[in-house]
Design a protein around this nucleic acid. Structure first.
Ligand code: SF4
Ligand code: SF4
Lengths: 157, 157
DNA sequence: TCAATCGCGGATATCAGATGTCCGTGTTCA
DNA sequence: TGAACACGGACATCTGATATCCGCGATTGA
């Protein structure tokens, strides 16, 4: 049970993008976070395909959020990077062995699968309740009010 | 984000064990579910180390639950197999780059990590609310009242 | 027009962990 | 004493995550 580390990168990038007024190239986002440029590019493309960010090509291109940060939940970012596959995947072992469950009882998920899916639903609900804007506010609280001014200043360099 | 498939095996084994009156050898549990004997043995050892089942060696050995099924939650089984590591692991990328966060602000987890951990807590709470006994009751409901009689009969073979 | 900068997608390499097997040891019981 | 069993370690294998690279097309400013 491990989440892709790219999720952390993507979330941080979204927070930064929420504070930038111009498109930010992947190059810049990568060096700001001290991470691999080429690999981050892959994840930004995933965000793009998910419709969370939009890209502009060419000389002064880069990435911009497509919606206000308050309308982008952490769940959106997580699912854009990590996919929509549930963590628990039923192998239907109840259909194996000397006493297999009958096909008609297998039409709906068994109790085990139901419990797992309910738990994952609770997890998703919790992540959906937090937006990128909330996170940005948290950063200000933790690092001081001028934090994003410094970020914008560095991005303009 | 993927849970070990051994979790499904382990949960099913616990349900079966909750209905057996004698110790059940790994061999038998494996063929009942149509899965690998040697690999399942590994997982049963993990359950044993976690204190969920107890093993008796020797000629008529096997596995028995150490507690009533109602006192074993699905979370217990999941953590015994999958470990206690959180799915989200902070890499502290806020300390990288041209504007690193100061060491004292990094003493506590940032907003991103807090949101992730809260969500995982909700997931654990949901799994903790379901016991192996609950699952066994669900099986009876899905597969008919004589299901476990047939299971016990086969185990006695 | 031309060169530099940028996003995009595919191919590829690398690596860690999950999955699965095997064997030697010790233990119990018929 | 031998058969059946649990246990742990040492492997082998396979999958997916991680990471890099290259060629392409788009855009912009010199
Ligand atoms: S009992 Fe549930 S988890 Fe197990 S094989 Fe059946 S549907 Fe899948
Ligand atoms: S912002 Fe949170 S998740 Fe990101 S590096 Fe800092 S502590 Fe880790």
């Amino acid at each position: 049970m491990k989440m892709s580390t790219g999720v952390e990168w993507a979330v941080h990038c979204c927070v930064v993008l929420s504070q930038a007024e111009d498109p930010v190239p992947a190059q810049r986002l990568a060096e700001f976070h001290g991470i691999s440029r080429t690999y981050l590019a892959k994840h930004l493309q995933q965000l793009s395909r998910a419709g969370l960010v939009s890209s502009t090509e060419g000389r002064v291109g880069g990435y911009v959020l497509t919606r206000p940060a308050a309308e982008i939940s952490v769940l959106d970012v997580v699912q854009a990077i990590d996919g929509h596959e549930p963590a628990f995947r039923c192998t239907e072992i109840r259909q194996n062995g000397p006493l297999p469950a009958s096909p008609e009882t297998c039409r709906r998920a068994c109790g085990v699968a139901r419990a797992m899916h309910t738990a994952e639903q609770a997890w998703r609900d919790s992540l959906r309740a937090v937006s990128v804007a909330d996170l940005a506010a948290g950063v200000l609280e933790d690092n001081g009010p001028q934090t994003f001014d410094r970020v914008r200043e560095w991005l303009a360099t």
